[in-house]
Amino acid sequence: MPLAATAPPILSLRELSKRFGQTLAVDRLSLDVPRGSLFGLLGPNGAGKTTTLSMATGLLRPDAGTAVVDGADVWADPPVAKARMGVLPDGVRLFDRLTGAELLRYHGLLRGMPEADVTGRAGELLAALGLAEAASTLVIDYSAGMRKKIGLACALIHAPRLLLLDEPFEAVDPVSGETIREILRGFVASGGTVVLSSHVMELVESLCDRVAIIAQGRMLAAGTLDEVRQGQPLQRRFLDLVGTQALDAGSLSWLRSS
């Protein structure tokens, strides 16, 4: 990959750390995401994926370390860095007493977009994600999958160069999932960059060209898909790196008796 090797990375995390009380959630984590890649962030529950993404997007102040987006430091120059990112956070609420259309308009206007652009793009996004029918329903009445989709639309509306998506496929039905994959592939083909977190190996393997595996707040492996896989299935490699939890021979024996 000559382009990736020469051009500066679009997202660069250096020695990011975050401690919550006694727990070290993220431990001196460094990561470079090359321009034009579709980057998968893998890790078991509680690995620090969401914490890392929160520190990279300005939601959570790191204890130490830096996050740089396209040359702009997220914590030193937030307006510039944030303008270049589109973010789908996980586990936060939406302004859910707005309708889907109103929420999209809100995000567009917050980003300082002209009203005409907001209206046009909002309509296209709602139609593409299959939310046109639900455009005038309050987001609070959306299903979990619909909320993911409207969240994704909000992250896309200002046409950012870098997308950071936390669990974008969770609770999304297969049809919408394919639509989202198509949107992401097209976005990357036109020069955009996507970072997404997931713990579904098959999905990452089929969609991403680069992956990083983190556990207990540390980076275990990062690189192109083939570099990380080392000739094994991603699932196998992931389990080898993260470690499996073996069941005792006798545990849960009552469950097998019947």
């Binding site: 997007t57 300005g58 939601l59 944030k82 609420r93 302004f95 917050l110 980003r111 909000c154």
Partner: peptide
């Protein structure tokens, strides 16, 4: 009252 929905303001970089 916004609760964590306030993250929309933080992420958008609104002043």
């Amino acid at each position: 009252y916004d609760s964590s929905a306030l993250s929309a303001h933080v992420l958008s970089g609104v002043s």
